[in-house]
Nucleic acid binder design. Structure first.
Length: 450
RNA sequence: GACCCGUUCGUCUAGCGGUCUAGGACUCCGCCCUUUCACGGCGGCAACACGGGUUCAAGUCCCGUACGGGUCGCCA
């Protein structure tokens, strides 16, 4: 049997990190086993579902690179992939239940008779979980008043307005779409017995279930969209690499069982397995996610670094086509953790109007004999014939030693003069990128300034 | 409240009865490297929720308790 997994988001207008991780696990599992990953829009609640709210989710998945084999925009043999367009199918399945006498009407709604027996979920991660639906569903709970109340245990599967309910369509679609493995959040574990009852009522063999632990926020409660790092579009804007986000999400609830922490998507696919999935919930750690991103940044090929950084450079007014960009990015990647930090590291290379950092100016001014030193520095740089790293260094060193100083004494003033700040990327390579003429201009400018 | 799932450093985790004076990673703190800031290297702080069993031996198995999470909708 071929492996078919699915991600079935409801179009809420947000791709939540938890949902994204569920999608990732499904995608990894399908790809690893040579199967298909199906995307299905669970838009049965017409009031909340709009095209735009689904697009946000699709865009997020595309950004992460979790392309689906069948789904919205990619037709396959089991479509349509919008539940709102599958009413005929649901009607047919409802008819089966009706024919078997397993349903009845209740105030305009249709209910499914829940069997009065123990049902066991053989979960790949949680093990065997047994529940008697009739018993457990007969007692309801009102969270407002914190009181229990008797209630009808039978499941509503169709609303009086004709709309079908999640549990029903979910099961029907999984049957129709030939889903082999249902990988989803543990919050669905309790519902799974209900789904199993439905599969049985349809006379269908249920898929394999794997309920993955939840991601909690820093406070240990369910992540809401207000928590930092909860929404995928935040990662896009903050300058994360999609592969880094996938990497971090994978690590939240799954372990390769060795000390490896940084993975390319291909490596993740290779290493991923259900055995490695943990059974305890995990708290989301934004700081570590940033670290993972920094690691990915360091490993990116120059071309990929360039293309990923491009939007952030453009936003900062730096043309990604500038021939100096590639070199500048090499200087930036070691000290930026996020793509969004890159322009701040290298923009002084590209600017025509350098800003000087006030504390840095003061620091240079406090150096005794700074005027002479600046003049000497200028001459040293001016004398460099071949404007390259080694030559520049050699010239500075020679000049410094001629004055009985170490090269380091020249470097701070030189840095502030050319880059505007004591902090910044590797200086001499940056100077090479800036160009001799511009550097000399900056040094001269700065000498007058102080 | 009922039912279900879970519990190793602050966080993510390794550990599947002896190799655990519990390993790695993030964070934090030192030191080194160094033209700054970083990177990097080295070192440090820090955990088996608790109580009973089982066993020659338990972080590892069992049972309780506590705590956390989830489900209990004509939301998904």
């Amino acid at each position: 049997m071929s492996v078919r997994t699915r991600f079935a988001p409801s179009p809420t207008g947000f791709l939540h990190i938890g949902g994204a991780r569920t999608a990732l696990y499904n995608w990894l599992f399908a790809k690893k086993n040579g199967g298909q990953f199906i995307l299905r829009a669970e838009d049965t609640d017409a009031e909340r579902s709009t095209e735009a709210s689904l697009d946000v989710i699709l865009d997020g998945l595309r950004w992460l690179g979790l392309e689906w084999d069948e789904g919205p925009g990619k037709d396959g043999p089991h479509g349509p992939y919008y539940q709102s367009q599958r009413t005929d199918i649901y009607d047919a399945y409802l008819a089966k239940l009706e024919a078997a006498g397993l349903t009845y009407e209740d105030e305009g709604a249709i209910r499914f008779r829940v069997p009065d027996k123990d049902i066991t979920v053989n979960d790949l991660i949680c093990g065997d979980v047994t529940v008697n639906l009739k018993e457990t569903r007969s007692i309801g709970f009102d969270p407002e008043t914190k009181t229990t109340l008797e209630r009808n245990p039978d499941l509503v599967i169709k609303r009086p307005n004709g709309g079908y309910i999640f549990h029903f369509v979910n099961v029907v679609d999984d049957i129709e779409m030939k889903i082999s493995h249902v990988i989803r959040g543990e919050d669905h574990l309790s519902n799974t017995v209900l789904h199993l009852a439905l599969f049985e009522a349809f006379g269908e063999k249920p898929p394999v279930f794997a309920h993955i632990p939840l991601n909690l926020n820093e406070n240990g409660s369910k992540m809401s969209k207000r928590d930092k790092g909860a929404l995928i579009h935040e990662y896009i804007e903050a300058g994360f690499l999609p592969d880094a986000v996938n990497n971090y999400m994978a690590l939240l609830g799954w372990s390769p069982k060795d000390d490896t922490e940084i993975f390319t998507p291909a490596e993740l696919m290779d290493r991923f397995s259900m055995e490695g999935v943990n059974n305890g919930n995990s708290k989301f750690d934004y700081t570590k996610c940033v670290w993972v991103n920094a690691e990915h940044l360091k490993r990116l090929s120059p071309e990929d670094l360039n293309s990923n950084a491009a939007p952030f450079l453009e936003k900062a007014g730096i043309s990604a086509d500038d021939p100096r960009v590639t070199g500048a990015l090499e200087l930036a990647r070691e000290r930026a953790e996020l793509l969004s930090e890159i322009p701040g590291v290298i923009d002084s290379i590209f600017t025509d109007d350098l800003d000087y950092d006030e504390p840095s100016i003061e620091k240079v001014q406090s150096i005794s004999g700074i005027d002479d030193l600046m003049a000497a520095l200028y001459r040293a740089l001016e004398g460099v014939e071949d404007w390259a790293v080694d030559e520049i260094k050699a010239s500075i060193k020679e000049s410094a030693e001629g004055r009985g100083l170490k090269m380091g004494a020249y470097m701070l003033p030189c840095r502030v003069a050319t880059m505007g700040s004591m902090k910044g990327p590797d200086l001499v390579p940056a100077m090479v990128l800036i160009g001799k003429e511009e550097v000399l201009g900056r040094v001269e400018n700065f000498a007058e300034l102080i």
